[in-house]
Simulated scan of single mutants.
Amino acid sequence: MKRAKGAAAGQVRIIGGSLRGSVLRVADAPGLRPTPGRVRETLFNWLQPFIAGARCLDLFAGTGALGMEALSRGARAVTFVERDAAAARALQANLQRLNQDKGDVRGADAFDYLRGTASPFDIVFLDPPFAQALWDDAARQLEAGGWLARNALIHVESPVEQMPALPANWQLHRERCAGQVRHALYRRAAADPLD
């Protein structure tokens, strides 16, 4: 499991915003892969003009590091979706300990959640377990299900050697590789009704 520089085992440190330096306690869950600190730093530099007041969805939340960084930097609300019960409990405990009442943890499978009633999000963090290759299906459900605001931004993390098949109206805004991880920020354009 990759950890933020300066964080002990079972911990991830928030790197910016009002919660900078705060430690997130991390559950010991199979396949949990926190987004590395340098990736989070780059991503939130990209998101800096958009994050304040945004409604965010941390799908496949895991440690919740991305959603917590968003709250730290002024997001209006973050919904964390995590199916592993221990990880979801750890997320809830971190929100309570850090007095973050704008975070909402949903202990659910991401696809079950996406079959529910949609409410559009401004920013979505899409970082499923790499071994399960869930990007394509999750992206299709986000797009088709009404989960994305008109000009939503979607952050996608994937292995360098694997390029997810994303909806045609998701336009690449920025991308970078860090070790074996490719992370990219897409901007949603309105879908062509003739497609």
Rank of each mutant, 00 (worst) to 15 (best):
Met1Gly: 09
Lys2Val: 08
Ala4Asn: 06
Ala4Ile: 11
Lys5Met: 12
Lys5Pro: 05
Ala9Leu: 08
Arg13Val: 07
Ile14Val: 15
Gly17Pro: 03
Gly17Val: 06
Gly21Leu: 13
Gly21Cys: 05
Ser22Lys: 15
Leu24Asp: 00
Arg25Ile: 10
Ala27Trp: 04
Asp28Arg: 10
Ala29Arg: 01
Pro30Gln: 06
Pro30His: 03
Leu32Val: 03
Arg33Glu: 02
Gly37Pro: 01
Arg38Trp: 00
Arg40Lys: 15
Arg40Gln: 07
Trp46Glu: 10
Trp46Asn: 04
Gln48Trp: 11
Pro49Lys: 12
Ala52Thr: 13
Ala54Gly: 06
Phe60His: 02
Phe60Pro: 00
Thr63Gln: 04
Gly64Ala: 09
Gly67Asp: 10
Glu69Ser: 08
Glu69His: 04
Arg73Asn: 06
Gly74Glu: 07
Arg76Ala: 15
Arg76Leu: 11
Ala77Val: 07
Ala77Arg: 14
Val78Met: 08
Thr79Arg: 14
Phe80Trp: 08
Val81Ile: 12
Arg83Tyr: 11
Ala85His: 10
Ala87His: 00
Ala88Ile: 02
Ala88Cys: 11
Arg89Cys: 07
Ala90Val: 05
Leu91Pro: 01
Asn94Phe: 05
Leu95Trp: 04
Leu98Asn: 06
Asn99Trp: 08
Asn99Asp: 15
Asn99Gln: 15
Gln100Ile: 13
Gln100Ser: 08
Lys102Ile: 00
Val105Arg: 02
Arg106Ala: 11
Asp109Val: 06
Ala110Ile: 06
Tyr113Pro: 04
Leu114Thr: 12
Arg115Phe: 07
Arg115Leu: 08
Arg115Val: 02
Gly116Glu: 08
Gly116Arg: 09
Gly116Trp: 05
Thr117Val: 12
Pro120Gly: 13
Pro120Leu: 09
Phe121Asn: 01
Asp122Leu: 03
Asp127Met: 01
Pro128Lys: 02
Pro128Gln: 04
Phe130Thr: 00
Phe130Glu: 00
Ala131Arg: 13
Ala131His: 03
Ala131Val: 01
Leu134Gly: 02
Asp137Pro: 00
Asp137Cys: 02
Asp137Ile: 03
Ala138Leu: 14
Ala139Leu: 06
Arg140Ala: 12
Gln141Lys: 15
Glu143Val: 08
Ala144Thr: 14
Ala144Val: 00
Leu148Cys: 09
Leu148Ile: 09
Leu153Pro: 01
Leu153Met: 14
Leu153Ile: 09
His155Pro: 00
Glu161Asp: 13
Gln162Ile: 06
Gln162Lys: 14
Pro164Met: 04
Ala165Leu: 07
Leu166His: 07
Leu166Glu: 14
Leu166Arg: 05
Pro167Thr: 09
Pro167Arg: 11
Ala168Gly: 09
Trp170Lys: 07
Trp170Thr: 05
Gln171Glu: 07
Leu172Pro: 01
Leu172Thr: 12
Leu172Val: 09
Arg174Thr: 04
Cys177Leu: 10
Ala178Ile: 01
Ala178Lys: 00
Gln180Asn: 11
Val181Lys: 02
Arg182Asn: 11
Ala184Pro: 06
Leu185Lys: 07
Arg187Gln: 15
Arg188Glu: 04
Leu194Asn: 13
Asp195Gly: 08
